[in-house]
């Protein structure tokens, strides 16, 4: 087999051409000076406090600085949003308790024309088996009547139904909520 050296003699001569490729005159003198300048900068950089180096590293390039700024803004936004959500939940709980403790607005009660009468509004206050107080306003047109603690519709077909079902004793597991509808009268006010 022919040796690689002999085989590629013309190529080797051509490759010699690359030995004549030279940088501009004075390049190597400037090159040495630039290397030493960079070394001096590296030395000064190493002597800087760590926070100064970190800040400089973050803001050295415009694109990098922009990316860091956006990332920082995103973190700040997330923090504010998280705090706001947590704060809002606390406020809702507080708000519920505050409204529950507030006295009811003084709305002038309408005196019923008379219990058992077919005309006029009937006020029924139902004391549930669990002791919860429910105030119901039954429309006069239903013809419902109150007797013996039970409310019976005169005409089941005409009854619009209860505004809500009173809680039964069996299903009570949690303290029953207290519903007060506008225009109702509290038990203490009605004297019952």
């Amino acid at each position: 087999m022919e040796s690689p050296q002999n085989q590629s003699q013309p190529l080797t001569r051509l490759l010699h051409l690359k030995r004549f490729e030279a940088p501009p005159p004075g390049f190597h003198r400037r090159f040495r000076a630039r290397v030493m300048t960079r070394i001096e900068m590296e030395r000064e950089w190493a002597e800087l406090p760590w926070f100064h180096r970190a800040l400089t590293a973050l803001t050295r390039q415009r694109g990098l600085a922009l990316a860091n700024g956006v990332a920082l803004a995103g973190v700040a936004f997330l923090g504010v949003a998280t705090f706001h959500i947590a704060h809002t939940v606390v406020n809702e709980e507080d708000e519920f308790q505050i409204y529950a403790a507030l006295p009811l607005p003084s709305i002038p009660s309408r005196e019923p024309a008379g219990l058992g009468s077919a005309e006029g509004a009937m006020l029924a206050q139902v004391e549930g088996a669990v002791g919860a107080t429910h105030s119901l306003v039954l429309p006069a047109s239903t013809g419902a009547s109150w007797s013996g603690g039970r409310v019976a519709a005169a005409d089941p077909g005409a009854a619009p139904g209860w505004l809500f079902d009173p809680p039964s004793g069996k299903s009570r597991k949690a303290p029953a909520p207290r519903f007060v509808l506008p225009g109702s009268v509290r038990s203490s006010d009605s004297g019952q």
Partner: peptide, 18 residues
């Protein structure tokens, strides 16, 4: 981005042949 050829390259016999 090539460097310029040295002046002596023109006078190298091997390269002149090429």
């Amino acid at each position: 981005s090539l460097d310029d050829l040295d002046f002596n390259a023109e006078h190298t016999p091997d390269l002149v042949e090429l």
